[in-house]
C-alpha cells in the first residue's frame, strides 16, 4: 500500500513541472496574447482591457496560480478560433481519440506480446526469424503511408470500409490497426528478448529439474517473469500511440484530439493547443502511473523492498 502511495507522490512534482511548462509555453510565444484576443484592429484601450480581463497585468506567479486554479475548475479559456470554451471543444473530441487509442493499444499489446513470446520459444527457428522480420518491418513502416495504402485498398478499390470519419464501429478498424502496428512491432521484439533472457535464467533450469510440464515452465516461470519489463515498456509505448494518433487521425479524418491539435496549430489557436498538450501529457502520466503500480503487483521485490 505504501508503495502505491509513494508512486502517487512521485508523480506530483512531475505534474507540477509539466503545468509550468505548458503555462510558460504561451508566455514565450511571439506576439501579445491580449492583442490576439482583442483582435487585429483593436484600439490600445481595447487591448489594455483585454489584458486586464486575462489577468496578464498581474505578477507572473499570480498568473500561474490563477491558471492552475482555473484549470482545476475546468476553465481552460476560450478558443481564439471558434470563441467557444476550450473545455467544450476538447470534450467533443475526447471520446473518439480514447476509443481509437484503446483499441490500438489493446490489439497491439496482445498481439505484440504473444508473437514475441511465441518467437522466443522458437528461438533461431524459421518461425522466429519470420516473426522478427515482420517486427522490424512494422517498426520501419510509416503509419501514415500504411493508412493511405489501406484506404486505397479497402475503401477506394474494394469499397468495404469507409475512408474516414467516425460513423460506426466499422470505421474504427483501419485507424486502430494502422496506429497499433508500430507498437505491436516494438512489443514483439522486446518481449521476445525478455523471454529469451528469462529462459536462460537458473530458476527456469530449476523448474525443469523439478520435472514440471513444459507448459508450466514456459508460462509460470518464463512468461510471468518476462512480462515484468514488458509492462513498463507498454506504458512508454502508450506515448508513442498518443503521438501516432495525431498523424493517424489526420489520415482518416478522425474527429479526435489529434486532428484538433493539428488544426489549432494551423490557426494558431493557442488556448486549445495549451489545453491539449496539458491533457495529453496528463493522460500519458496517468497511464504510466497505473503501469507503475501494475509493475509493483507483478514484482514483489519492488513492492516489498521499500
Amino acid at each position: 500500500m505504501l508503495f502505491f502511495l509513494r508512486r502517487l507522490a512521485a508523480a506530483i512534482p512531475v505534474l507540477f513541472a509539466v503545468s509550468v511548462f505548458v503555462f510558460g509555453f504561451v508566455r514565450v510565444l511571439p506576439g501579445d496574447p491580449a492583442r490576439l484576443v482583442a483582435g487585429a484592429d483593436a484600439t490600445e484601450q481595447e487591448v489594455a482591457s483585454a489584458r486586464q480581463a486575462l489577468g496578464l497585468d498581474r505578477p507572473i506567479w499570480e498568473q500561474y496560480v490563477r491558471y492552475v486554479g482555473a484549470s482545476l475548475k475546468g476553465d481552460l479559456g476560450v478558443s481564439s478560433r471558434t470563441r467557444e470554451p476550450v473545455i467544450d471543444v476538447i470534450a467533443a473530441r475526447f471520446w473518439p481519440t480514447l476509443w481509437l487509442t484503446l483499441a490500438a493499444m489493446g490489439w497491439a499489446t496482445l498481439a505484440g506480446t504473444f508473437i514475441g513470446v511465441w518467437a522466443g520459444t522458437r528461438r533461431g527457428r524459421w518461425q522466429d526469424q519470420m516473426a522478427m522480420l515482420f517486427a522490424i518491418g512494422g517498426l520501419s513502416f510509416p503509419g501514415f503511408w500504411l493508412g493511405l495504402l489501406l484506404i486505397n485498398l479497402f475503401s477506394v478499390h474494394l469499397g468495404w470500409l469507409p475512408t474516414g470519419g467516425f460513423d460506426s464501429w466499422l470505421s474504427l478498424l483501419m485507424p486502430s490497426f494502422t496506429l497499433g502496428v508500430g507498437v505491436a512491432a516494438v512489443l514483439a521484439r522486446f518481449s521476445r528478448s525478455a523471454y529469451v533472457d528469462v529462459a536462460a535464467e537458473d530458476y527456469v533450469r530449476t523448474a525443469r529439474s523439478k520435472g514440471l510440464r513444459e507448459r508450466r515452465v514456459i508460462w509460470r516461470h518464463g512468461v510471468r517473469n518476462a512480462l515484468i519489463p514488458v509492462v513498463t515498456l507498454t506504458g512508454l509505448e502508450f506515448g508513442t500511440l498518443l503521438g501516432g494518433a495525431i498523424v493517424v487521425e489526420t489520415v482518416f479524418a478522425w474527429p479526435g484530439l489529434g486532428r484538433l491539435l493539428v488544426d489549432s496549430i494551423a490557426f494558431r489557436d493557442y488556448p486549445v493547443i495549451q489545453a491539449e498538450i496539458l491533457l495529453l501529457s496528463a493522460e500519458f502520466m496517468l497511464i504510466n502511473l497505473v503501469i507503475d503500480m501494475l509493475y509493483g503487483v507483478l514484482n514483489p521485490e519492488i513492492r516489498l523492498r521499500s
Binding site: 537458473d202 530458476y203 533450469r205 530449476t206 523448474a207 517473469n225 514483489p300
Partner: peptide, 11 residues
C-alpha cells in the same frame, strides 16, 4: 545447483 541466489524464481 550452485547459485542459490538465482536458482529460485524471484517472483
Amino acid at each position: 545447483f550452485q547459485q542459490p541466489m538465482s536458482s529460485l524464481n524471484p517472483v
